[in-house]
């Protein structure tokens, strides 16, 4: 395994409009393999849209997104970018894990079934292999005793940990987190952040949209402050959170306390 500075994610001049509203106004970003990047910023700053563009849940209006050496969502011709077939896009997405604010667990499946479904359907694992992988991952997030529970029977924190296990079951090279603790009761935030910290310590490349400044300070290699669809400031957590250069960053940090 090479732990060099190969980049896992590269965004070049990424723009995204919803109708006449431009949400991303030219974003350049490089995330190295093994790096943990936290995206912070006010709501409407474009951070969630940026995250969703990385795995092509939103298609970009212009610009390029390369993940692990693969241009996401498009084939490049001499003049244009042409959107790939649904099948190819699905294949690209299967290598990127995503964790949602609202968990989005499949309510009609148990925790175990949630985790093993995609490896079985997409990777063609047998039921036994899928179950083994799911059990291992549920143990890793501390939920081996709840594998037969349905999402409705789990607390928010437990659901989000199952969702992390479900994403990890595809053995992704990159994990995207979209405000993973924003829908949780305050006392449940810690258990989810602990799982994410462990994941970061294991060397996973992570892009995390978050309002948890404590987590960003402790775990992130780099903090990026977004404002009005552009990256306004980035650097080490100590710099951006402790000694921000921009007035808008200072205002934002003062508001979130």
């Amino acid at each position: 395994m090479t732990m060099t500075t190969t980049s896992m994610v590269e965004l070049r001049a990424v723009r995204k409009s919803f109708g006449s509203v431009e949400v991303l106004k030219g974003v350049d970003l490089t995330v190295a393999a093994g790096e943990v990047v936290c995206l912070i910023g006010a709501s409407g700053s474009g951070k969630t849209t940026l995250l969703r563009c990385i795995n092509h849940l939103e298609s970009v209006s212009s610009g390029r997104i390369v993940v692990d050496g693969t241009l996401m969502g498009y084939a490049e011709t001499s003049k244009h970018l042409v959107e790939l077939s649904a099948k190819r896009i699905a294949g690209q997405r299967s290598n990127i894990g995503m964790v949602f604010q609202r968990f989005n667990l499949f309510p009609h499946m148990t925790a175990l079934e949630n985790v093993r479904m995609a490896p079985m359907r997409v990777r063609g694992l047998s039921k036994a292999e899928g179950t083994a992988r799911a059990c291992e991952l549920l143990e890793r997030v501390g939920l081996s005793d709840r594998q037969d529970a349905y999402p409705a029977q789990l607390s928010g924190g437990q659901q989000q940990r199952v969702a992390i296990a479900r994403a990890l079951a595809m053995h992704p090279r990159l994990m995207l987190f979209d405000e993973p603790t924003s829908a949780l009761d305050p006392e449940l935030v810690g258990e989810v952040l602990a799982v994410m910290k462990k994941l970061a310590d294991d060397g996973m490349t992570m892009v995390v949209v978050t309002h948890e400044m404590g987590f960003a300070r402790e775990v992130a290699d780099r903090v990026i402050f977004m404002d009005g669809g552009v990256i306004l400031e980035q650097g080490s957590p100590a710099d951006v959170l402790g000694n921000p250069r921009e007035q808008r960053t200072r205002d934002f940090l003062a508001r979130v306390g």
């Binding site: 990127i96 609202r102 499949f106 995609a118 359907r121």
Partner: peptide, 26 residues
């Protein structure tokens, strides 16, 4: 909920899998 098909899409399921494994059962 739209989040259901998004979660399935993010896992790499294709349109048909999303429909028959995730959306239709619900």
């Amino acid at each position: 909920d739209r989040g259901q098909s998004e979660a399935a899409a993010a896992l790499g399921l294709r349109t048909r899998g999303i429909m028959y494994r995730v959306v239709m059962p619900q």
